[in-house]
Design a protein around this nucleic acid. Sequence first.
DNA 1: TTAGGGTTAG
Length: 432
Amino acid sequence: MSRRFPPGAMSRRILERKIQDRYRAGHIGTDDALNLFDELIQVAGPSSVRAINCLLTVVGRDCPALGVSLFNRVARAKVPPHNITYGILVDCCCRAGRMDLGHPAMGHVIKLGFTAEAIVNFSHLLKAICAEKKTSYAMDIVLWIMPEFNCVPNIFSYNILFKGLCNERRSQEALELINIMVEDGRGCCRPDVVTYNTVIDGLLKEGEVGKAYSLFCEMPQRGISPDDVTWNSIISGMCKVHAMDKAEDVLEQMLDRGILPDVATYNSLIHGYYSLGQCEEVDRIFKEMSRNGVQPDIVTYSIQMDYLCKSGRCTEARKIFDSMISLGQKPTVTTYNILLHGYAMERSFYDMNCLIELMDDNGISPDHYGYNILISAYAKEETVVILRKTVTSRKVWLAWYMNDYLCFIYMPDYYFFNKLSLMPFALLSLLY
DNA sequence: TTAGGGTTAG
């Protein structure tokens, strides 16, 4: 009787199955995935590609650069990568800030003849190109290069372009593109609810409230029903320009259509009323939330803390912060920044330093908002003298004396600022 | 393996 599998093949199949089952159940962490990858790659064969895709997805999600290096090991093993494997690779290259590797990876997909099925791979590439504020180039890819390779752009491709245009403050062009697509749209590439939501949000962020509202009103005529995201965007836009009556009108319309407000809806209203100093209205919204069974979330508490800090009531804000933690809510970097800004306004340097230590203990790194708050606060002290700036391998230490006290700021994200032109405003004014 | 909304600094 002949054996069905060569020696070792059965244990390899068992390992592959185990990996895929655990991946589907969401039971693989990054460290786990690395160990399983080491185990599998030693015995891997052509059948291992699905399990390898699962492991690359888990590792790449957390650490895209590591995902790229694992792919190199796959390429050296006798496992022909699948189109999906290349998709994960393109995504990892782009998210690791290695567009110089992302383009060749995509070129490889084309060379191997995967182009017709490479639609998702193109989406990763388009997203990364748009993130670099090169949406015009991404548009050339969608309109000319993809059809050239028989890869028909889908609504995902177009919606990535719409988001890119809006992020470049080119919402008017996005609006015109919607109209062109409506006039001669074909098949799957008619604008959908996500397209409208993206452009409505872009117009609102550029202060074009009237145009955003008109587009919102045109949706039903064009056969697209607004969803919860659409309603929330319009309500948030109205709240940001302090048109609270209009926001309440839109909320009524939303309820009439049977769509229930969620925590994001209430957060917009609470923020709007706090900005106007109308605390009685805030209390009313909180009661309404509670009546409708909607629980406040981290953003609700952050908005409340921000109001208290800006009113010189940091102690009360801190009580909310501490009670939030005791209830098991994890503060985000924004929550810390709000409190940090409150302490900075009070010039409470001791509290600021303690909070930074707490962030560190909880594994949260300050972002460019946080650094600006810190540096601006210290820079306002007349006795600040920059003592030393050390730049080593993408890391920056700043040290200075303030009131005979040696202060440090460690900037692990220097490369990030440099890359995205997000070097903190206050830091620039100190260094140059 | 791909797209959209609510909070923070100067």
